[in-house]
Computed example of a mutant assay.
Amino acid sequence: MFYRRKLLLGTAAIGGALLPFASSIAYSQDADFNSAADGIKGILLDAQKGGLLSDEESTIGPISDEYSALYQITAAIDELESNPSNDPLRDILLDQLYAGLGRLNFSLKSPPAQLDEDEAAPQYTGLKSSYIQLFESCQIPPERKGQVDWHIDRITKPIAIARYRAVEGETGVPWYFIGIVHALEASFNFRGHLHNGDPLDRRTRQVPSGRPRIWNPPSNWESSAIDALRDVGNNSDWSIPRMLYLLEGYNGYGYQYRRLKSPYLWSFSNHFSKGKFVRDGVFDPSAGSKQCGAGVMLKAFKLKNLI
């Protein structure tokens, strides 16, 4: 059975006031999302009261699901990051928001679709024509267009592109490929490993675990991203079908052996509605995906003439 993981936020006294405390954010399948939403809004309101976020009414909207939480957290991080204030509250709030983003990421992302030990990875030559056909026939439903466009806007933000291009310069991997992986693995969190979104303050704990092998120091996102991409950096073919093959491999080829379309590629398109791995080795035919697929993002990039 697929359980939706949700955020729990606690509080801590800071300067005599009660603020949501990021280190007490935790997962629980029984958690009340309304409580989590209230906690997130509390952080944003504290930032407004401290003069660190704009106080327009539209700044803090309703948080009804994971995506509305994602929109609000990333927008607040953007504004706080652009604020040169030396107010210590700014750093406290940023820590809280980044921690919340990291945990929210794991309620959105797809578990690895790993192969069984006796299954070999499929060869690209056998899948190339299928990838071409799927990409050409991929359509984004009108009700998903806003979410897909939001992903493209995040990837193409000048600050984000600068960081993706820095990693491209070290690895040869196109900046937009890096941005797509960043969306799927870390929900655009620059304090999370590109491998799987785990916090940068230690090596990864989830699959793939123990990466980078040498860590802390260094402890910056770029160094982690270079390590995460080492298996694809030697590639010289960055055509659409080849990128789809590499992106599916990033999550795992488990769907190929079930003769299913991977939500990691095709969620938010006409090619996927339900049926996904919900835990390692556990497939739920009725589970949907909360993420925008990599192939769908590539399609949007193409339609916008960005690649």
Rank of each mutant, 00 (worst) to 15 (best):
E168D: 05
Q48A: 00
W266A: 12
S130D: 14
P217W: 00
L8D: 11
P208R: 09
E170Y: 01
S107H: 06
G61W: 01
K261Q: 15
W221L: 01
Y253P: 02
Q96L: 08
P20K: 01
Y257W: 09
L97G: 13
D237M: 02
L44H: 05
F272G: 07
K261F: 14
E222K: 03
V181P: 01
L246F: 04
R191L: 14
S68L: 04
L298N: 01
L19F: 11
R5Y: 12
T204F: 06
N105W: 08
V148T: 09
S64K: 06
E185Y: 01
A120L: 13
S58I: 10
G179I: 09
L194W: 07
D118A: 13
L93P: 05
K274R: 13
A287L: 02
S239G: 05
D78E: 14
I140H: 04
I159V: 14
Y164W: 01
K128A: 13
P142L: 06
N216E: 15
F106Q: 10
A120V: 14
L260H: 15
R258C: 02
S68K: 02
N196V: 05
S273F: 02
Y27C: 03
G126Q: 11
F33T: 10
E248Y: 05
G179E: 09
D65T: 06
G10P: 08
L303N: 14
T204D: 02
R230A: 11
A287T: 03
R258V: 10
Y176G: 03
L303Q: 13
L7C: 01
R230D: 13
G39N: 01
Q48K: 03
K6V: 12
R258H: 08
G281I: 04
F190N: 10
L80M: 11
D231Y: 07
E119P: 04
D227W: 06
Y255W: 09
S223K: 04
I159S: 14
L104G: 05
M243V: 15
R202M: 12
P174F: 00
N34W: 06
L200D: 09
M243Q: 15
S35I: 08
N235C: 06
A300I: 00
P212M: 10
R165E: 15
E170Q: 10
D30K: 05
G10R: 10
I140P: 04
L97P: 07
Q133F: 07
G281Y: 03
V173N: 05
W215K: 03
L101K: 12
P20R: 01
S110Y: 08
G179C: 06
D118E: 13
S286C: 03
L18V: 13
Q114P: 01
W215E: 04
L134N: 14
G254E: 10
E117V: 13
G210N: 12
S209V: 15
P199C: 11
P20G: 01
W266V: 13
D280V: 09
P88L: 10
G102P: 00
P158W: 06
V181N: 02
D284V: 00
G275Q: 09
L93S: 11
